[in-house]
Design a protein around this nucleic acid. Sequence first.
DNA 1: CCCCTTCAATGAAAGGTTTCAATGCTGTGA
DNA 2: TCACAGCATTGAAACCTTTCATTGAAGGGG
Lengths: 397, 397
Amino acid sequence: MDEAEQAPPEGGERSRVAAAVPARSAVPAQPSSARLSGSSPVAGRPVAGTPVTSTGRAVSVSRAAGIKEVAAAAAVSLGTVSNVLNRPQLVSPRTRARVERAMEELGFVRNESARALRAGSSRILAYVMLDPSNPFFTDVATGIEEVAAAADLSVFLCNSGEDAAREARYLDLLLEQRVQGVLITPVDAVNERLRTLPARGTPVVLVDRVAGAGEGCSVSVDDVLGGELAATHLLERGHERIAFIGGPDTLNQVRDRRAGALRALERAGLPPDRLTVLATGALTVAEGRGAAERLVGLPAARRPTAAFCANDLIALGLLQMCVRLGVAVPGDCAIVGYDDIDFAAAAAVPLTSVRQPRYLLGRTAAELLLDEANNPAHEHQAVQFTPELAARASTVG
Amino acid sequence: MDEAEQAPPEGGERSRVAAAVPARSAVPAQPSSARLSGSSPVAGRPVAGTPVTSTGRAVSVSRAAGIKEVAAAAAVSLGTVSNVLNRPQLVSPRTRARVERAMEELGFVRNESARALRAGSSRILAYVMLDPSNPFFTDVATGIEEVAAAADLSVFLCNSGEDAAREARYLDLLLEQRVQGVLITPVDAVNERLRTLPARGTPVVLVDRVAGAGEGCSVSVDDVLGGELAATHLLERGHERIAFIGGPDTLNQVRDRRAGALRALERAGLPPDRLTVLATGALTVAEGRGAAERLVGLPAARRPTAAFCANDLIALGLLQMCVRLGVAVPGDCAIVGYDDIDFAAAAAVPLTSVRQPRYLLGRTAAELLLDEANNPAHEHQAVQFTPELAARASTVG
DNA sequence: CCCCTTCAATGAAAGGTTTCAATGCTGTGA
DNA sequence: TCACAGCATTGAAACCTTTCATTGAAGGGG
């Protein structure tokens, strides 16, 4: 029932935009219901999405001052102003003060394009991410930003939205920008552009993917081990029939985590058919809910007593449906997720999950990138971290 | 209990970094447990965070080719190459083909710094966001990106992390980059730099904040109305004692939403003391859990039968704790959240929530920005949208 | 057969900064 | 008093592209 509400979360709104705003106009024509926001509260209740606006005049401005104007105002040469900006210790305190005052007065802002042009590269790193709404990636991004800030670089986040074309567009753009380096969680394994960037002198580090030979640096987490940890945990708690829920199988993460679960069974001396694989079409909450119904539908004799989900979103969907169907967690069905996103601990039954060192992933990736950019003796590395299990109530009843 | 696990999610990892990596080195020294990833699976099980690495030689590259080299290779002038790039219709097909082949062969990549320098502005928009891990803001960002893509611009996301200093750093950076415009959800209401940007010719649009007079454009949602919707919904379902959970009070959103709830009470002819305010220190899941305990601790006679939470994170925490304490939702306590993030519908009991037009917020903000950047007759607008209620099981039992 | 128009291509200037060799100045040691 | 070291400052070149007025060539009309 709430499926329908959730699926196209704001479809209605968007079509309303189309209705209110002629497609070509840069700014919405104001519908008749528009009000000055200074006036009293809106009478009646407009449909969601109906904008209420107030307007005001735009103020025009004088043209930007450059280093040249500053030099003139301070009665020094161009070179001196540049020195104040870049090598202040070379400038006598007196002159420096004069120049700085001139900058202040003129509202001088250094033109980064000119700087970058002359210097040959910018002070920027970029992280091209799959999905900024996945907390996993934003944590990675935070790690990256910490390292970058320490090196006095800034990070621009680019959202590929799991779309190879958008990813390619961003990579081209970043190349043209001559960024210092690119961190990327690529959409597909094979990406020709990921080879051209390093060939053009822009270092690239793969995040959450393992670089093949000659592919440069990468930072990832051992998903096979993670799967093994999860399954071993369930085995240790006495479960002997386990479901693996996840897909599509094209994702490395899914394959590796399942392989890890199988390895755990093998170590425990159990046959592989004790792992019931329920394939999903994506790693989403909705797919998790669907899997729950399939799981419950299995004949009791063969029904697993525990489920290992390929990520936390699936696990949360599964959990939600179990609660609704009256399946006790962990009594009737223990659940392990993967990623340990914040919402995992915050679920109605706190979720046991495999935790990946997210900040550290980001930090290390950024460190490798900086090394590649600055250290001529740089050697490519494929760093792989090990995950750990966060046991919570969904398995430890 | 799981609080402790959640609070510093990866504190341990970080300190491990510090141990493994001398603070000054750009790249982690490899601990002795490092292995070539090509070799057989790791023996034993290293602590989470211990990296396993493989290495390879970095490949050096030839220097980048410019427009000049292309011109030479194609035996044409600089200007012609530039025309191929920017005004291809002016170039005869024959020459154009020749130039394009030369570009291909030399691996030419346009230097955006030089282009921007000459042209005076870049093809980039930026969205400075409070918190990319809040799904609300990533949805806004998606809306922005759609509009930008249609105008052939790219969007860089900047994460201020609710830190005014970082925000200021990014704004300076963007100014130096001469971006086409800046969209921002500012950290505080008063921000001197937000006035200097427009004064230097970079248009700014406030997102999820209302611009004061002379402050430029803004796009926001009517939080008072949202609060009123939420409370009215509860009143209509027969609840006469309602809790408002949220804080800190310094946040506009919190104050407005509470004011809306009071307005609803007033309209229903109920005294304001029917709204029990439980203040929280932040809008987080953990605070929501804490509020649940306070709520349950109230004497039965005065205990509200429903709660309106200032955002969904609080509501999810409250919901989680209710489930754990055996308080039936919505039977004993109905819950309404705010923002309608995806996890709201995915909770164990799907959450009724106030939905804001997130994509539309982003789209409209971007459209206003583009208008301000390109239309000399631009007039500042403070657009305000109206929210709507998504009723789900947490109130509709 | 010449002039004029049209289309393609050209070459030089400009944009704002950094870099660096060169200049001018001050003060020191002989 | 002179030579020189050391420091502060200077001026011009370089970075790579875009723009635009100009040139050159080809074709059509008188």
